[in-house]
Each structure stands twice: as structure tokens, then as C-alpha cells.
Nucleic acid binder design. Structure first.
Lengths: 224, 224
DNA sequence: AGTAACTTTAAAAAAGTGTTAAAAGAATGT
DNA sequence: ACATTCTTTTAACACTTTTTTAAAGTTACT
């Protein structure tokens, strides 16, 4: 099970949250300031949720939220805001910036857990099995089927096709895709991705054209 | 698209909510009391969301929630509570009884819509598609339609038309446009932009004049 | 009419993508 | 630890599409 990052400067609240999440089987990490949060995020992997207090000693948590939503690596990482600023404007602002939930202080830990479970559970169940045209992916088993026949894919091929599948119909930017598959520094103009797309198309045989090139932008899974 | 049942005795709030949901493409029905709600539910079909105020003239909305969660027919029907009782206990109680969200009064309608969209997973669509006159842009697919027929645009053509579309009716400065499309140093007096406008007009055919030249300033998308 | 601002055109230059084969690198089993 | 096998990356080239330039043609305004 994934990790929860708690960004909260009040030690007591932090501890309370951390204990509850731990008792639910999540691993936790607490940081008390924005700078620590950024530092942790850069080295992190396997994060599945962030609990974010808005008022922190070195600034406003909304900045962090904005950053997360703009960073390819964290775009889909759920964020729950907890804040003493409970006015309607604050709430809307938080939600519009992409927070998954907004909890007002004082809150009971129970509420946070309920809301977190809800968000994470939805994430899980919506991703187990996915169909798109002749393709079917079983995420748990890490197998992709073409017309009920399992494809033989290498790890990277799998990741690329999985990502395209999760984002079918929408254009997935070249750069975006590269960042997902090679999170650290693979320069954008390398031809690796093209090579993979080429191989995927070959493996998809007659269905190869399900991967459409959108010149200048990236690729897209289309209905054929 | 499904129907939204609004259970709210304050006529004004009810109307506000109903208008917003309608503008989002949902059908609505308002009831002002628990008994009306029960009556409506029994005869209903095609419901996809309930907005439930807790304080109603003939009792507490939580009872209705309890009923819904125990009734087979409604077990999975999303319920969003809106309530002036915003304390932590109330919130937890509502969530534990199976509400999908709990919004505290006063709230902005925008918040309700965001949270409803999220629950109904219709999140983005409203922003992903944009219409202007005969033009329709699908940002997700990076396609612009002219009278329902997709235009074949190059990346730069697409970007220019997208920007004009997002800023339709207002004059977009030459310089501004150049800065958007070529963020780094393309000198202002180059004729590239003109060349693109020309090609866009050609591709728009008889609708070419939808791009109006505002001599000395820039361009503008107008209704024709 | 004169001038500055825009349009149009076509050809040159640049950029993006596909494909291939071979080299480099990882992972696996003995 | 070694050899084997599978995977990833690189590099080169062909090809296509897009972008830019530059020059000539229009238009609109004073």
C-alpha cells in the first residue's frame, strides 16, 4: 500500500493523523513546512496521497498544490486540504486548484480517514481492469490483451501502452509521456519513444493504427 | 444525462442550485420536505444524484439518508449533504451514514457543482470543449471542428486558432499572440503570424472572415 | 496619392516522425 | 561469476510535414 505525506506544522495534529493512517495500513511521512515538503517530494516515490495544511510557517500551501497540479509527475496524486480557513471562497479556490477534498478545522481524524479511504478506493477500483476497443488491461496482473489474446510486452512497452490506455482518446504529449516513463532526465528529442511506439504498433499488428500520431503534440489512442 | 433531486426547503437556495445544475446539463427536481422527497423517490427513475439539506420542516435529512442506504434501489445513489450544521461531529456522522460529500453552509454554488461533477466523474468536460459560432474545439483531442467537420491544422495553426477561440470577441494584440505562440524571441515585425492567419482563413473557407483584422492592433474572432 | 499595415504566394529551410540494425545494458539461470 | 538471453538505447537515414523567409501584391487610412 502506498505512502501518505502529511504536510502540517502542528506537531500534535500531525501525530494524530499519522497514527490514524498508520493504523489503517498506510505508511506515513510528516513534514512541517513547505520547503521540507518540496524536498521530500523530489526524492519520493510510491506516494499515494498528500494531506496538506494550508497555513505553514514558510508560506501558503496553495502554492504547493499549484505546483503539484502543474508537475507531470504529481498531476494525478490526490491531495486533501485541511484548513482553518473554512469560508466558501477558500473552499472553492482549493477545489478549483485541483484539491480532491477540503476539510475544515476542527475536524475529527475519523473524517479524514473516511474521506481519504473514499478517494483512494475510487482510484483503485476504477483502475483494476480497463477496456478500450480490442484492448483490455488487467492492471493487477500487468497483462494487456489484444482481442482476448495476451500481448508479450517488455516492461517499458507495457508502461507506455498502459498510460495511453488510461488516457485513451486524449492526446498524450510526447514530453508528458517521456516524463512518465523516464521520470529523470531523458532528453525530449531522443528517438527512444518513437522506437517504442514503432515496436508497439508492430506487436499490435493490424490494430497498430489504434495508436495515432498527433504531429507536434504526441500520441493518442483512437477507436478504429 | 441523469437527474438531480434537490431536497431543500429554502426556495431561494433551491432555485439557485437547480439553475446551476440545469446549466450544466442536468435535469432537476426540487422538493421542500422529507415527505415530498419520499414520494418523489418512489416514483422516480433515472436519478443520478441527491442534494440533501439536513434541516427540513418535517424532520432531519439524516433519516432519509439512512433509508437510502438501506434500500436496495438507492444503495449506490450518490448523496451530497448541504447543511448549516458544520461541526465535526455532524460531518462525520453524515459521512459515516454513507453520504458522498458534506458541504457546509454558506457555500458557493460553484463548490457544489465541482463536488458533484467530481462524484459523477464528469470533471473536465465542461472545460475541454468550447464552442464559438461554427467552430468547436476539443482540447483533449486537439481537434477543431468547423460545422462539425474536423479541420486539418498544423500545430501552430491549431495553437493560434485555439488562443483566438479562448479569447473570442476580444481583440488579441499582434505582439501578445506572437508571444504566446513563440514564447522566445521572435521579433515582432516578422510576417510569420500574417502568413498563418492567411492560411487559417483559407482553411476556414467561407468562414474565413470570422477572423477579423484590427488594423494596428491585432486580430479578433467575430460572429458572422 | 502616398504610405504604412496587412495579405498572399511560393520556395527554401527546418523540424518532426518512422524505421532499421546494431551496440550497450540488464536480468536471469547455471 | 559467467554466459545467455532479453531489453533498452543509440545512431543513421529516409521521408513527410511544417515553419519561415522574402518579395510582390492589396488594402485602408490620412
Amino acid at each position: 500500500m502506498g505512502k501518505v505525506l502529511i504536510v502540517e506544522d502542528d506537531k500534535e495534529i500531525g501525530k494524530l493523523l499519522s497514527e490514524s493512517f498508520s493504523s489503517q495500513g498506510y505508511k506515513c511521512h510528516i513534514v512541517g513546512s513547505l520547503s521540507e515538503a518540496y524536498t521530500y517530494l523530489l526524492s519520493s516515490s510510491d506516494l499515494s496521497l498528500i494531506i496538506l495544511d494550508l497555513i505553514l510557517p514558510d508560506g501558503d500551501g496553495l502554492g504547493l498544490l499549484k505546483y503539484l497540479r502543474s508537475a507531470l509527475k504529481f498531476k494525478n496524486l490526490p491531495v486533501i486540504i485541511i484548513s482553518a480557513r473554512g469560508g466558501e471562497l477558500d473552499r472553492v479556490l482549493g477545489l478549483e486548484l485541483g484539491a480532491d477534498d477540503y476539510i475544515i478545522k476542527p475536524f475529527s481524524v475519523r473524517e479524514v480517514i473516511i474521506r481519504a479511504n473514499r478517494i483512494l478506493k475510487k482510484d483503485l477500483e476504477s483502475e483494476e481492469i480497463l477496456n478500450y476497443g480490442p484492448l483490455k488491461i488487467d492492471k493487477k496482473k500487468k497483462v494487456i490483451f489484444l482481442k482476448e489474446k495476451p500481448l508479450t510486452l517488455t516492461p517499458t512497452e507495457y508502461k507506455i501502452l498502459e498510460f495511453l490506455l488510461k488516457n485513451s482518446e486524449r492526446v498524450v504529449g510526447r514530453e508528458e509521456l517521456i516524463r512518465i516513463i523516464w521520470p529523470v532526465e531523458k532528453e525530449y528529442y531522443s528517438r527512444v519513444l518513437d522506437a517504442y511506439i514503432c515496436r508497439l504498433r508492430t506487436k499490435l499488428g493490424e490494430y497498430g493504427k489504434i495508436i495515432e500520431t498527433v504531429r507536434g503534440f504526441g500520441y493518442r489512442l483512437i477507436q478504429i
